[in-house]
Structures are given as structure tokens and as C-alpha cells.
Amino acid sequence: NQASVVANQLIPINTALTLVMMRSEVVTPVGIPAEDIPRLVSMQVNRAVPLGTTLMPDMVRGYA
């Protein structure tokens, strides 16, 4: 089972991601792999991401 990136807090739209906003968790469906967390830092979300939501590739500008 692969860990995915999950929002550690509410992340408002257009917010640049920081390490404290994300955690890794084994979830279904699988989202962005946890090993990509360092790559996600400073990328912006293109929608509001509620606490506990799995980050999907289409939620992060420039990721996919």
C-alpha cells in the first residue's frame, strides 16, 4: 500500500504548499504519492482543499 499526500489543514485556493500543510497517509483512492511531498513545496493549489482531503494531481498547479 502506497502512502498518498493528505491535507493537514484547510488549504485555501491559490495557496503555496508548505511541509506543515501536508502529511502522508495510506488512503483510497490513491492520490499524489507521499514521496513527491518535497516537490510539492511552493506549488499552488487551484482549489480549496479541506482538512483530510487526498491531494490529486489536478489539484496542484504545475504538478501533472
Rank of each mutant, 00 (worst) to 15 (best):
G62M: 07
V60N: 02
L55D: 02
N8H: 13
A3K: 04
P33Y: 15
M21L: 07
N14E: 15
A3I: 11
M22R: 00
M43Y: 10
V5N: 00
I32N: 00
L19T: 12
G62W: 05
R47G: 10
M56T: 15
P29E: 14
A16E: 09
T54L: 04
A34Q: 11
R39I: 09
T18C: 07
Q44I: 06
T15L: 07
V6F: 02
R39G: 06
N14K: 10
V49P: 02
A48W: 06
G62C: 15
V41I: 11
T15W: 06
R39L: 12
D36H: 09
N1A: 15
A48T: 11
R39Y: 11
G62F: 06
Q44E: 09
V26C: 06
A48R: 06
P29I: 10
P12N: 13
M22Y: 02
V41K: 07
P29G: 04
N46K: 10
M21W: 02
T54D: 01
P38L: 10
S4P: 00
P57R: 05
A7M: 05
S42D: 12
E25Q: 06
Q44R: 07
G31S: 03
P33I: 13
A34C: 15
M59E: 03
V30T: 12
L19Y: 10
A34M: 12
L51R: 05
V60Y: 01
D36I: 05
Q2R: 03
V20H: 14
P57D: 09
L17E: 02
R39H: 08
R23K: 10
R23D: 07
L17H: 00
N46Y: 12
V26E: 15
P38E: 10
T54K: 04
G31N: 00
P57I: 07
M22V: 13
E35H: 11
R23W: 04
T15G: 09
L10F: 12
M22F: 07
G62L: 07
V20S: 13
D58V: 08
S24A: 15
D58T: 10
T18N: 08
R61S: 11
S42E: 06
L17K: 00
V41H: 09
M22N: 01
R61V: 15
G31D: 00
S4N: 01
Q9F: 12
P33N: 12
Y63T: 04
S24T: 13
N1W: 07
E25I: 04
D58K: 05
P12Q: 12
V41T: 08
P12I: 08
T18P: 00
L19H: 15
D36Y: 12
V60L: 10
L10V: 10
V49N: 01
A48P: 08
P38T: 10
G31R: 02
V60M: 04
P50K: 12
M56Y: 07
T53A: 13
I11T: 01
P33A: 13
R61P: 15
A16T: 15
V20C: 15
Q44P: 11
V27C: 04
V6E: 01
V27W: 02
R23C: 05
I37W: 03
L19S: 10
I37T: 09
S4L: 01
A7C: 05
V20M: 15
M59I: 08
N8I: 06
P50F: 10
V26F: 09
N14D: 14
T54Q: 04
V20K: 12
V49H: 02
S42F: 09
S24L: 06
N46M: 10
A64L: 10
L17Q: 00
R61M: 13
S24V: 13
L40T: 01
Q44V: 10
Y63W: 12
T18V: 11
V5S: 03
V45N: 03
T15E: 07
V60Q: 00
G52S: 15
I32L: 10
L55Y: 00
T15K: 08
N8T: 15
V6W: 01
V27A: 10
Q9R: 11
V60A: 01
M21T: 03
Q44G: 04
L17G: 01
I32D: 00
V5C: 06
P12A: 09
P29W: 03
V41F: 05
V27N: 03
T18F: 03
G62I: 04
I11L: 14
L55V: 07
L40G: 00
T18E: 12
T15N: 05
M21A: 09
V5M: 02
P12Y: 06
Q9E: 11
T53K: 09
S4T: 04
M43F: 10
L55S: 01
V49K: 00
P50C: 14
V27Y: 02
T28G: 10
